[in-house]
Design a protein around this nucleic acid. Structure first.
Length: 581
RNA sequence: GAUUCCGUAGCUCAGCCGGUAGAGCAUAUGCCUUUUAAGCAUAGGGUCCCGGGUUCGAAUCCCGGCGGGAUCACCA
């Protein structure tokens, strides 16, 4: 049975039983009164020692140094770590020293959560420490933590494997305090933006995630099914079309922090689900929206980083207003020397080829320009820059430029070589909108997988009349990456998408036993990799017999050696099938 | 999807010119009343990712798979 646990896990499970025998509940129900945090003590004790004569603090044991009748340990709470000093005769004033000798020294482990009461003092080494008068076990830990040691700036045994860190984020958060901080700052970013938008008087709303038609962006969706309605539903790829319906309904400013879902590639800039903030404001245009973005993002940088200058990789990015503004064709001209304004599709293909930009025949004019821009300009824009006035073909929801034919009133902000937001003067001409949707269908016929769907209800809403409106989408994950200086999106999403972990078969012994394998051989079989009757089917009788007889010695089984006939009989069982299932 | 690297003890890693495993931390036992990643001593702990092949013999070499990283492609 214990085959499933490592030696250290066995020790901890035995400690649980021992604690229970001593009348100590390993996972008590009561709360624990806490009157101070680790950071409070470290920050305030030197200036005001009297305040800390009676502290009560709870946290996880992160290290232990036991020296006879006295011990040191480090406790980690939500704010940081503090050393505690435990002296035998203080916590066991009478004759019975069990609480120290047995409970504290032997039955507690690194990873356990305890509460301590005592007073704060400074050790001879000058470390602020809680002298413990009383401790309470609050939660026993059955698994061994990966221990990270650090001294000054040196780190030993760092827990860095991304697979383990992302799959078991709780562990990552326990042992890597900097990771905890990244997510605190991510939340501070969201709070900063929400406060900003609320101060402007805009209404935070919620719109459907399950949508019968997906729209508002060019992307491949996830598909699901609703049983009662017996219909196909899509997970939203954007919330644009619903938010604009709300503007039609009469709100003058609505926004939503939304999880969107796109069924596309994954890499360090893309997770299948990601967070966007979309904002729509009536009676405004994209020029106005640029001013808002600058102000909101500068404020966010100040709130998250304490400065408008932010270190990102090798760069320092400065979010102080005003940001540089360039039209798309000026940007392409600036970085490539090519003038593409007014160029037709064939001409664009030629330009792309000259610039070594890969294109394919499904691409329309808009897509071609986007490719050229993405390859030659975008990666070179480190400081926040607004790129304005996009080709109409790639922006089916943006209104036509008031003075430049063939373009729309749209901008993106590019920062650190990546788009962080996208905005436009919204298209509110229902007839033009219908024509644009139809142009998308034409792209679909050419094989573009990411055409936008025609949404009749959205058109109907526009036909009732939508005020002139400015709209914005900001990628929260991308912005969080920049403001927390993280190289990948997985570092700013608590639980990034990953392939499922391989599950171990449960309770293998039962199935093997009911099939007729002698109980006493089952531990050896499991050790040999036979976890279920089906595994026997492909096993060779000779090899299996040898393996099992080898394991018989290793596991010190008091059994006669197996014969080949016996093993063949077991393998025969797998062919008969299993009556219990 | 392509290229490439990686998968060894609970954790971090070494071993890889083939001879069935090693260190540090963690754990156990004993000693030590204020230590500073790290006291001293001893001990236990491994399906060397999985499957096949070559070989007398594979953690090591070869092939296939699984999982992960990086780069690229795709992707507002």
């Amino acid at each position: 049975m214990n085959n499933e646990f490592s030696d250290q896990e066995v020790v901890r499970r035995e400690a649980v039983e021992e604690l229970q025998r001593l009348g100590i509940e390993p996972w008590p129900a009561e709360g624990y009164e806490v009157n101070v945090t680790a950071t409070d003590i470290l920050r305030e004790f030197p200036g005001d020692p009297d305040r800390f004569a009676n502290v009560s603090l709870a946290g996880r044991i992160m290290s232990r140094r036991i020296m006879g009748a006295a011990s040191f340990a480090e406790l980690q709470d939500a704010t940081g770590r503090i050393q505690v000093y435990v002296k035998r005769d203080d916590i066991c004033p009478g004759e019975d020293k069990t609480l120290y000798n047995t409970v504290f020294k032997k039955l507690l482990d690194i990873g356990d959560i305890i509460g301590v009461k005592g007073f704060v003092f400074t050790t001879q080494m000058g470390e602020i420490t809680i002298h413990v008068k009383e401790f309470t076990l609050l939660s026993k830990s059955l698994r061994v933590l990966p221990i990270v040691k650090e001294k000054d700036d040196a780190v030993w045994d760092a827990f860095t494997d991304p697979e383990l860190r992302f799959r078991q984020r709780y562990l990552d958060l326990i042992v890597n305090p900097k990771v905890r901080d990244v997510f605190v700052r991510r939340t501070r970013l969201v709070n900063s933006m929400r406060d900003f938008l609320n101060r402007q008087g805009y209404l935070e709303v919620e719109t459907p995630i399950l949508q019968p038609l997906y729209g508002g962006a060019a992307a491949k969706p996830f598909v699901t099914h609703h049983n009662t309605l017996d219909m196909k539903l899509y997970l939203r790829i954007a919330n644009e079309l619903y938010l604009k319906r709300l503007i039609v309904g009469g709100y003058d400013g609505v926004y939503e922090f939304s999880k969107d879902f796109r069924n596309e590639g994954m890499d360090r800039f893309h997770n299948p689900e990601f967070t966007q903030m979309e904002l729509y404001v009536a009676y405004k245009d994209y020029e106005w929206m640029m001013d808002l973005v600058e102000e909101m993002v500068e404020q966010a940088a100040l709130d998250v980083c304490g400065s408008s200058e932010v270190s990102v990789g090798d760069h320092v990015i400065n979010f102080r207003r005003p940001w540089k503004r360039l039209t798309m064709s000026d940007a392409i001209r600036e970085f490539t020397g090519k003038d593409i304004s007014g160029t037709d599709e064939a001409g664009l293909v030629k330009v792309a080829e000259e610039l070594d930009v890969e294109v394919d025949p499904t691409m329309g004019k808009g897509k071609l320009i986007d490719e050229i821009f993405g390859a030659t300009v975008e990666p070179n824009l480190t400081q926040p820059t607004f790129i304005t006035d996009y080709p109409v073909e790639m922006s089916p929801l943006a209104r036509k430029h008031r003075s430049k034919p063939g373009l729309v009133e749209r901008f993106e902000a590019i920062c650190n070589g990546k788009e962080i937001c996208n905005a436009f003067s919204e298209l509110n001409d229902p007839m033009d909108q219908r024509a644009r949707f139809e142009a998308q269908l034409e792209l679909a016929r050419r094989g573009d997988q990411e055409y936008m769907m025609l949404d009749e209800d959205f058109l109907r809403a526009l036909e009732y009349g939508m005020p002139p409106t400015a709209g914005l989408g900001i990628g929260i994950d991308r912005l969080a990456m920049i403001l927390t200086n993280q190289p990948s999106i997985q570092e700013v999403i608590f639980f990034p998408q990953m392939r499922p972990e391989k599950r171990q078969q449960e309770a293998p012994e039962k199935e093997l036993q009911s099939a007729g394998i002698p109980t006493e051989w089952i531990p050896a079989l499991i050790k040999a990799g036979i976890r279920q009757v089906a595994d026997l089917k492909n096993a060779g009788a000779g090899k299996l017999m040898n393996d099992l007889n080898g394991l018989r010695k290793k596991l010190k089984l008091e059994l006669p050696a197996l014969t080949k006939e016996e093993v063949e009989r077991w393998i025969g069982l797998s062919e008969k099938g299993n009556p219990s299932s």
